[in-house]
Design a binder for these strands. Structure first.
Length: 554
DNA sequence: CCTAGAACTTAGCATAATGTTG
DNA sequence: CAACATTATGCTAAGTTCTAGG
């Protein structure tokens, strides 16, 4: 801990401010008890935990913060239908503003988005409005759009003092609603604000995009807290849907969202003891996998030749999950969500088999949309037996048929549980990401190198993990332009190669890769922690930072 | 068993905050 | 200091896994 504080203080170009102090205090508060427990003679920290699924003994909070009420537009901001200005009823107007605000977003040109929006919008209209407004193409939201754009701009240019005051107000609200008391600790709540109404922004080609997300009322919300705590008071004139006292769950409040019918929860911040310990446990499971992964690999390699179809399918799936860090791939209800897949749900159309490709034998070409409709494209050299099996699984099937027709995530995970306690498909992602990072760091880092060089190594290692996990984000529209600028910079700075190297890398990193954050190895390589993690990440990994000795290996 | 729904983690996009430059 | 670039944080969608109940 103290070594860590010193590292922060020594740094050039870093402000050692209140935030940093707060972070250190929090780290002390949470990580030291964990540390002591973890190091107790033969004592496992889980044993300190409450019995049998109990998550807490005492929980008190204020209840969630509701979205501000809708403020009707003034008469000078007009909606036009078919060229004619028209005053909408309050409900219809509110929903119109949701669309109007988004006018410069691509969503509003999407046919599905438009159709869903229009259907839901018409439902909140008065019958007179519904009768008149029958074609979205005749709707003109431009004044609404301009109004909100100007409002944002006005906010942007207001004086420092006004901004400061507003910030203070927000902070006061956060102090009141943003924290709870759990077992004697004041803990930050991750999402104390109830999601405001709006238009559903599904990713990829989501069949429900544009649908109206309803305004949540206290009557929709279930509160969870201690029986002996100060029970949250609903807003005046309202009641909670229910108040329950369930200490076997971690959430403080929940409601059912209307677009997908899914539950939404209010839970604690990652910096909390509850979440932090769970996260810790996740890495412990991954480390246990490290100890037996060779056996597990041997087992599924043997299963590749099993007479039983189910075992062979499972073996191939595990091979992919392990080698390529694919997600498990639950089955999804058709038409309810974007069509995305993971390992178990791969279809014949997602895989191409190449007996020979560029001089290599047994190449599998993957092309599918994974989580968040992010494309996974990869050509992989596989074991002969894997290739043979795949060929067999895919024989006489239609493109839309499942490759692994005898397999699902449930029976896969059940099998994994038998191989190692706590093992599930996602543990392989954690394990492979961690081990990749460590190996890359070992390979890339020269302990004699400068700080900049070490940072570069770290970023490269991180990049390798991002590639493994297929973490990416869509390139901003200005990508080409900024890339050109970067190129120009490189030319200009060719003289000072050392400096430029790291700059280029970080510039490229920004565009290509979203950082993965699971390293605990900064201390080991003597890299200042805040060059690598931002405040949020440091808070979340306070425990990990603290635990990391110089000789720490994953 | 099996399955639907509940609970909890992971992840990309939006936006706010901060830094840089002309 | 405005305009642009980059980073940090907020938000919530989209996954995985667990669990309860038939």
């Amino acid at each position: 801990m103290f070594r860590c504080v010193l590292a922060v203080a020594q740094l050039p170009f870093t402000r050692f401010n209140n935030t940093t102090h707060l972070w250190c205090l929090r780290a002390l508060k949470y990580s030291v008890p964990i540390l002591q427990r973890a190091r107790g003679a033969g004592e496992r920290w889980e044993e300190e935990h409450y019995e049998d699924g109990v998550k807490w003994r005492f929980l008190e909070h204020k209840g969630p913060l509701f979205a501000p009420e809708y403020e009707p537009l003034t008469d000078n901001v007009r909606f036009h239908y078919n060229g004619q200005p028209m005053k909408l009823s309050a409900n219809a107007e509110e929903v119109a503003t949701f669309f109007g605000k988004m006018l410069d977003h691509e969503y509003t040109t999407n046919a599905i988005f438009r159709a869903n929006f229009f259907t839901d919008w018409r439902e909140v209209m008065t019958s007179a409005e519904r009768k008149l407004i029958t074609n979205l193409n005749k709707c003109d939201f431009q004044e609404i759009h301009t109004y909100f754009t100007e409002k944002t701009e006005a906010k942007r240019v207001q004086s420092k003092e006004v901004k400061q005051d507003l910030k203070m107000e927000q902070e006061a609200i956060a102090q009141e609603y943003g924290y709870c008391t759990m077992d004697g600790h004041r803990e930050r709540i991750a999402n104390y604000k109830i999601e405001p109404p709006g238009l559903f922004r599904g990713r990829g080609s989501h069949p429900k995009m544009g649908k109206l997300k309803n305004r949540i009322q206290p009557e929709d919300v279930i509160i969870n807290c201690s029986r002996d705590s100060k029970i949250p008071v609903p807003p005046t004139g309202h009641n909670w849907k229910e108040v329950r006292f369930d200490n076997k769950v971690t959430w403080l409040a929940s409601w059912t969202e209307n677009v997908q019918g899914a539950m939404k929860y209010i839970m604690l911040n990652p910096s909390s003891k509850l979440k932090g310990e769970k996260d810790w446990q996740k890495f412990e499971i991954a480390r246990r996998l490290k100890g037996c992964v060779d056996d597990i690999r041997a087992k599924y390699s043997a299963d590749l030749k099993s007479r039983e179809m189910k075992s062979r399918q499972r073996a191939v799936a595990l091979y992919f999950i392990d080698k390529l860090a694919l997600r498990a791939g639950n089955e999804k209800e058709e038409g309810e969500t974007a069509d995305t897949v993971g390992c178990c749900s791969l279809r014949v159309e997602h895989i191409k088999l190449h007996n020979k490709l560029n001089g290599q034998a047994c190449v599998v070409e993957f092309d599918f949309l994974g989580k968040d409709s992010i494309r996974y494209y990869n050509k992989v050299l596989v074991k002969k037996q894997v290739f043979k099996n795949l060929k067999h699984f895919m024989q006489n099937k239609d493109p839309s048929d499942d490759v692994f027709d005898r397999l699902n995530t449930h029976n896969l995970n059940k099998h994994l549980q038998e191989l190692m306690e706590g093992l599930t498909a996602k543990v392989f992602r954690t394990y492979n990401a961690s081990i990749t990072l460590q190996h890359q760091l070992e390979q890339l880092t020269d302990s004699e190198g400068s700080e900049a060089e070490k940072l570069l190594s770290y970023n490269r290692a991180n990049r390798a993990v991002a590639v493994l996990c297929n973490h990416q984000r869509t390139a901003p529209k200005s990508f080409d332009q900024s890339m050109k600028k970067i190129q120009a910079k490189i030319e200009a700075k060719k003289e000072q190669i050392d400096l430029t190297k790291s700059e280029l890398k970080s510039a490229k990193m920004y565009h290509k890769v979203k950082k993965d954050k699971k390293s605990k190895l900064c201390k080991k390589y003597d890299v200042p922690i805040e060059k690598v993690y931002n405040k949020t990440q440091r808070e979340k990994f306070a425990w990990a930072i603290d635990m990391t000795e110089e000789d720490f290996v994953f």
